[in-house]
């Protein structure tokens, strides 16, 4: 490694957005996440990869306390967002989730119009003072979701009437509309066809300008295409976490290598 690259790397060093230390998650008696520590950078796409049931989605859902909605789930350890513990007693998960938005595996537009789908978050969080502002937020969000051109003529048509890829981009736009700082994406492309997947991946790359994006994915190619950092989970453990290029070209852990080369999965 020469000096030049060192300088480049130093320039690329960014703020830590989320830092998790010694996180343990239990589902009833099952120990689902075992002692995971990870630092997630701002304005970066971080990918979580690993075989099914390895805990990557569970860990992702800890980052905005979505696991609170499951009765039997218990989280231990510290997860800091900008240095503040999100599991602190004083934290209202509702306020947290406004900052840490989430996009789900299956597109889940509400059975409302496209406009109302986007406006839902801003409305509940009171982000718009009047109708004009709300209109503005909706348009901006749809543009950010790269779907504005496709739906601008039918904002009041039901969101459920869109195609799968459009629905997912609508859901991303919906998540963006609350002005989050972090976007969590739980296998956002697994229910989409290749063309829609390409569109969403392109969108994720653009979102990196403004947000810290964490994406759980099944597909290693996708992780390689969209992410700068990659974490490999296996059986509830974080096996390896490093730059994406490093993970895919020169993994340190033999398990990572086996997974990437298709021997476990």
């Amino acid at each position: 490694m020469n000096d030049m690259t060192k300088i480049e790397r130093a320039l690329e060093m960014k703020d830590m957005k989320i830092s998790a230390k010694n996180v343990q998650v239990y589902y009833g008696d099952t120990h689902a996440i075992k002692d995971v520590s990870v630092e997630i950078e701002d304005k970066t796409v971080t990918a979580f990869i690993g075989p099914s049931g390895c805990g990557k989605s569970t860990f992702l859902r800890c980052l905005n306390r979505m696991n609170d909605t499951i009765d039997i789930c218990r989280v231990e350890g510290d997860i800091l967002l900008d240095g503040e513990d999100i599991y602190d007693k004083r934290v209202d998960p509702v306020q947290l989730r406004a900052k840490v938005g989430m996009v789900f595996q299956k597109p889940n537009p509400f059975p409302k119009s496209i406009y109302d789908n986007i406006a839902y978050g801003p409305r509940i969080h009171g982000l718009a003072r009047n109708k004009a502002e709300l209109d503005e937020i909706v348009e901006k969000s749809l543009r950010r979701g790269a779907i504005w051109d496709e739906v601008k003529d039918r904002l009041h048509a039901p969101g459920t009437g869109l195609s799968g890829g459009q629905q997912q981009r609508l859901c991303i736009a919906r998540a963006v509309a609350t002005e989050p700082e972090v976007l969590l994406m739980d296998e956002p492309c697994s229910a989409l066809d290749p063309i829609a997947t390409a569109q969403v991946e392109e969108l994720i790359d653009e979102l990196r300008q403004s947000y810290s994006v964490v994406i759980v994915t099944h597909s290693m190619q996708q992780a390689a295409r969209v992410s700068q950092k990659t974490a490999f989970f296996h059986l509830g453990n974080l096996v390896e976490y490093d730059d994406t290029t490093k993970i895919f070209t020169n993994p340190e852990d033999p398990r990572t290598e086996s997974y990437i080369t298709g021997r476990i999965g």
Partner: peptide
Amino acid sequence: AMRDGSYGLGA
């Protein structure tokens, strides 16, 4: 999924 979508937005 509907509920998750809404909770995910901080509702």
